[in-house]
Amino acid sequence: MKLLFLGAKSVVAVLCLVTILAGCSTDEETTAPPAVDEIGSIRLKIDNVYGTKELALGANFMTAGSETITIETLKYFVSNVRLQRTDGTTYVVPQDASYFLIDEAIPASQRLRLDNVPAGDYAAVTFTIGVDSLRSTMDVTQRTGALDVGGAAAGMYWTWNSGYIFFKMEGEVLAAGTNPKVPFILHIGGFGGLNNPTVNNIRSVTLRLPETARVRAGNTPEVHILADVAKMFALDPVLSLRAKPVIMLAQESVDISRRYASMFSVDHVH
């Protein structure tokens, strides 16, 4: 009883100490060079936006080509993450732990946490938008998690022409004249083909970080990435969904993947 009573006091004291230590960590622990074999974690937060606004599903947005659109579905794969250190060396996230499906409707899907990252100072992040060709042809036992065709990836897979849909955006575009709303469907995939070469929409982006991300055992930086969908439409020449509202597996898809690869930037690191 006595012990317990004392305990409560010490707990408060310990808590205070922890808070102080935690407060210190960003200054002292992260500027010191990392210990050999020290590992930590890093978070990537991917925020889908439209220009200066949050991207809200169902809201109206104006494209660079002056078309009013509403977006109902926005999903895409992020994979094969690599982190470049300030000294130019690279840490490649183990492939099995490097597939993510970003879904605008599921906030948790927009926060990627990479664990077991070697402590270090990181200056840039590289990732693939889509699924690499090797994994796209792997045995079904290697397609788990985000890649499970009977689970998370069910709506992101072409069953009749085996391959993942890398990027899916669906919604409506307000058209002129008597037909006010036209549905648009962008299903972009294509890993290059197994037996015959075909479209390859595997795109990779490298984003420099405005501040160094210092990964330490006691410090987990968060890289805040913006995916600005407005940029997809603004890229020259301006994209018109009214002119071509449906693009799936076709040569035109290469232009769409070029566009969405341009929409990523790092806002800040904290």
Partner: peptide
Amino acid sequence: GINDLDLFPPL
């Protein structure tokens, strides 16, 4: 369109 029998049934 399908290269792997395992991935046929989902169609």
